[in-house]
Design a protein around this nucleic acid. Sequence first.
DNA 1: CGACACTTTGAAGACGATCAACGCCGGTGG
DNA 2: CCACCGGCGTTGATCGTCTTCAAAGTGTCG
Lengths: 256, 256
Amino acid sequence: MIALSVTDIAQTLPLLSGMTDNEKSGMLKEGQVRNYARGEHLFLHGDPAKHMYVLCKGTVRLIRETPDGNEFTTDVMIAGQTVGDTELFSPHGEYPYNAIAVDDVTALRFDTAWLKAYAQRTPPFAINLLAELSRRNQLASREAEQHANMTAVQRIVCFMQHLCTLHDFNPHGFELPYNKTLIASRLGIEPETFSRALAKISDYGITVKGTTVTMTNLDAIENKVCTSCSIAGNCPEHKMLEQKMNALAKPKGGAK
Amino acid sequence: MIALSVTDIAQTLPLLSGMTDNEKSGMLKEGQVRNYARGEHLFLHGDPAKHMYVLCKGTVRLIRETPDGNEFTTDVMIAGQTVGDTELFSPHGEYPYNAIAVDDVTALRFDTAWLKAYAQRTPPFAINLLAELSRRNQLASREAEQHANMTAVQRIVCFMQHLCTLHDFNPHGFELPYNKTLIASRLGIEPETFSRALAKISDYGITVKGTTVTMTNLDAIENKVCTSCSIAGNCPEHKMLEQKMNALAKPKGGAK
DNA sequence: CGACACTTTGAAGACGATCAACGCCGGTGG
DNA sequence: CCACCGGCGTTGATCGTCTTCAAAGTGTCG
């Protein structure tokens, strides 16, 4: 679990890109450092959206509960990502999901009212917000599409690929960053189905043994599963993976 | 099919809310009136996102094509709605879907570059954009959730309810605004499944005969289907429907 | 009238959810 | 140190839902 310092955040946070160092530090000093223990919630569904969070350490699960008691994991956020930015300018100002710490979490907490005012007087920040929301929209709509058109096996392959680039893992072999039940919930499938599906993904050039994932054949993924690949033609995610697989040596027998 | 004048748009367009009349007309005069015949496309997937469209007349279908030739209808937009606003500040600047006219369409077309600059120097407009994207995000993520947790019948009921409020129809009886194949595609289900499911939705207090929809029992919908109802407790959409059903007389025998 | 798109119905099959059972592991408490 | 427990993961069997393929009915428009 990597922890990010304030300077790390200033460099990596998409919401701050293109802003001057002065502007960055001016904004970051408004953030309060908050810690959350495993299982604690940052906020609950229906709470007034008073804060936005930048995660520095740990993993946060965004969950919506359905009437029949089912839980649906909307997303899983990691260090360097932002929670609650979508609700900053939401018309009715409530969080539409619970945010719960999967492990011990450190976050920078910002006041919504202040951020709103800040966005109004700092156009670059407003633009960054717009770009971020735009990106989220695309992801969300692709999510819905995948659920409608792809089988569980295909969605898992997609997810593994995404996981690998997001966390900057070595495609030749990496460990799952959280447990399988959480992944299944994130993908909207049952743990049983997930378990069974893992046995079948070797057709797509991926092997999963225990918690270790190995990607062996990217061509088997490309144009079969990856939506952005097969539709747009050139998928940045895929190219990154390819470069990395060529650059990194294949781990030998006893390598961890 | 209702056509909107420029003054109609100035009043109803969410993106213009809270702006002065001067600002509104200043922006609207930048829009070019464009007409599209039935079946014509406004733009295609992968096209550079050069324009944003405000629909004045007709219906536009947003479609993504999957590798295996399947078509997935991301959304169906009607007069008074905006197409391409999500891509205004999209990082890579391409439309992620096709936009195709379902019937004869009139739209106001705005230049993306101009809008971007305009948003930077007009904070209220940027804020409206943020609010709109925020709203879209919520809809998209609920879409994904519904697909994972609800049956076809339930999704249809949800859709009918949404349709009724969106188009301001009379719940006691209205005509479907476009054909069933399109609706099925919008819901991510096959036309056959859709057809069969229509026979079963009477359990939820809705009757569909041919292209006529009648809502008879809102209680049967509430807390059974409507996600925002059962989760948030008080769903604005539902309340509107309820008020309307009470206000409007039940149509007698030969009423149209 | 004929072509064509849309809609409906039937029958078969694929897929995922559900219920149930079991093995595995880490932790707790005696 | 061992027994017990709970959470996690896997496997099997069954069931409901949706898709797919096929066919036939409906409607509209030239």
